[in-house]
Design a protein around this nucleic acid. Structure first.
Lengths: 205, 205
DNA sequence: GTCTATATGGCGATAGAC
DNA sequence: GTCTATCGCCATATAGAC
């Protein structure tokens, strides 16, 4: 979490908005809450970003471009598939620990107005081409990955990396009921390890 | 989706509420939307269920008891761990294909008011005791599952089974961009197979 | 640019006729 | 039980002083 005191008003707002939107979602988030977090007046939010939706979009755009940076590892053809997958797992989990609700946002936004999202994504990814599924297909053909549909492999991978961040309230709850303290036990390092274990077991080399 | 025309007003409301709450969540859902879906007047919602929260609770209770029925397979001590895991995967995926937004539903409710949820869960699961984590721990000790934190194994499992239903708009979108037709290709059977493949690879026997 | 005060609108909830 | 009309709150958004 960035310090909010030594930044420009605009930066303070964006950082506060990121925190609050990520915690409560677009509808659950309150402009007053964002203003309080940024330690500025509520009217300033509208001065800088006109309205709630535009402010949300700014946060969303920032997240998207980071997302595509992370995906870029799959365009590095020189690395072996296992190495690329492991780097991807590390990077995407770091990304989600900064934007825990990001996958839910993308999901909802895509469901609501796919054309707008398509434009935003095209703008964010610029010249980068994401070929995750193609890369996986080639690896499966070459026998580097155990026989499994490439699309399903990708879905499994995304599930393993995304869901724990969405579901952390549930795990906190259910593990506490089992006498575990999730907040104390959980770390992104543990998650990275767990995901890599599952992924590695489904790869031959 | 049940037919709404040939049902009692109370049933029509509950079915409509289920649909709308599932789609938009507690805060995102609009009473007017529920009334329109049920094809009745908004005031009737309050006549039958007093307020929004109580209506939501009714929907939630129905969901919870179904959920615990599925979890019950882990209390069957006579089956080997692999068999239990596979049955669980089949059942939970069938459950989510009927209630695709259920995990998000539970996650949000737990995040908002955990104490109330704790009471509801205790009421719903009645005499049933869920020991998923304990069962996994024992299996890891016995060497039936490759060395991995039991809690993390459970999280991986939940991720694999839940996330694809939450994220189906995203996969539809991204696979379409790759020239695949997800809606045509995807089936719960494929997902069951993919999850079992990942799980099996992380089990020794 | 930043603030206080206020307008505007949406939504949950209620009153009361039928 | 079902409806129309309306209340009251709260969150977004704006006006206008400084």
């Amino acid at each position: 979490m960035k310090k909010l005191t030594d930044a420009s008003t605009e930066e303070k707002i964006l950082e506060a908005a990121k925190q609050v939107f990520m915690k409560y979602g677009l509808y659950g988030a309150r402009m007053q809450d964002i203003a309080d977090t940024a330690q500025i007046n509520k009217a300033l939010l509208h001065y800088y970003f006109r309205n709630k939706e535009k402010l949300f979009d700014k946060v969303f755009e920032g997240a998207l471009s980071k997302f595509f940076e992370v995906m870029d590892v799959f365009s590095n053809e020189s690395l072996p598939i296992k190495k690329r997958l492991f780097i991807y797992v590390d990077n995407i989990i770091d990304f989600y620990s900064e934007y825990p609700q990001m996958s839910m946002f993308i999901i909802k936004e895509i469901g609501n107005n796919p054309e707008i999202i398509r434009a935003k994504i095209l703008a964010a990814k610029k010249n980068k081409t994401i070929r995750l599924v193609q890369v996986l297909e080639e690896s499966i053909k070459k026998g580097e990955i155990k026989k499994l549909d490439a699309a399903m492999f990708m879905i499994n991978l995304q599930s393993l990396c995304s869901f724990p961040f969405l579901a952390s309230p549930m795990f906190t709850y259910s593990l506490k009921s089992n006498g575990k303290d999730w907040t104390k036990d959980f770390s992104t390092d543990k998650l990275k390890l767990a995901v890599k274990t599952f992924v590695e077991n489904s790869i031959t080399k």
